[in-house]
Write a protein that binds this DNA or RNA. Structure first.
Lengths: 137, 137
DNA sequence: ATAAACCTTAGAGTTAGATACAAGGTCAAT
DNA sequence: ATTGACCTTGTATCTAACTCTAAGGTTTAT
């Protein structure tokens, strides 16, 4: 049985974060002490590990909520349900990757075009590229 | 001279966005009509184009603010100043790319491990991977 | 002249995920 | 018995970039 501070320390998070997760329906301690203190057992700890691991692969708290409702009632779900969540997330991540890759390419070409030296910025090719009314998007 | 709605339409943004940019010191119309209406001239329009183009390569509004203060007073800056902004942004984008690439790889391997079929989720390898107390991070 | 479409301001709400603060109760050690 | 570390609740704040609402004034077309 761990108190909130002990569990937080164990997973290198803040007590505030645990209360936040509780308020948002992700993880409530199984019991409270007579003094009202939150007490977390091994199952709670496993659930927290699940949450943090899901976070570490990019799931949002809302998505983790969905994952948890499956996790806690596995027999009513099938593999396809779980895989769909993962694949949707994958698509989302890939979309973001695409956008960032475009940003990267644009920035790189701006950077390459600029001398980066002590010359006045009056003819800086970066600024010119951003100004130019002929190039769009 | 364009009214706020006309300029907004021209660039496919909302009038709210233009007021927002004004409030945040990015773009104020050169003049106001006798009725108090905002009136944007060609220079304002060019500035908006600059802002939107900077946004399209990934700069935040704060960063665009910096870029604009250079753009509007070029002679007091040198290429190195501009290039530094671009290169810092580039590093930031690359850092995000790295994180998302890790997410992608993790999700992909979760997805690959799962049959995705109509079998009960009780032995779903995705859930097992997220549960497993032995694998960390 | 009246309705639709436009404009003004100030200020509140949204999303996500915390993070901080205030006012107070509890516990362990000295 | 008192200090300090811990816990409780509720509420507020933060970032970013809008987005929306309210209450009202203006323009344009019919």
């Amino acid at each position: 049985m761990l108190k909130i501070g002990q569990l937080a320390d164990k997973f290198a998070i803040k007590t505030d974060t645990l209360r936040f997760y509780e308020k948002h329906g992700l993880l409530a301690p199984s019991i409270r002490g007579a003094n009202g203190y939150r007490l977390y057992n091994d199952k709670d700890e496993a659930k927290l590990r699940f949450i943090l691991r899901a976070k570490s692969v990019g799931f949002s708290l809302n998505e983790i909520h969905e994952l948890l409702s499956i996790e806690l009632d596995k027999s009513h779900w099938v593999c396809a349900d779980v895989k769909t969540l993962v694949d949707n997330k994958l698509l989302e991540i890939q979309k973001k990757l695409l956008e960032l890759t475009k940003f990267e390419a644009s920035l790189q070409s701006l950077s390459n075009a600029c001398c980066g030296g002590p010359d006045s910025a009056e003819h800086c090719s970066i600024l010119e590229a951003l100004e130019d009314p002929h190039v769009d998007k």
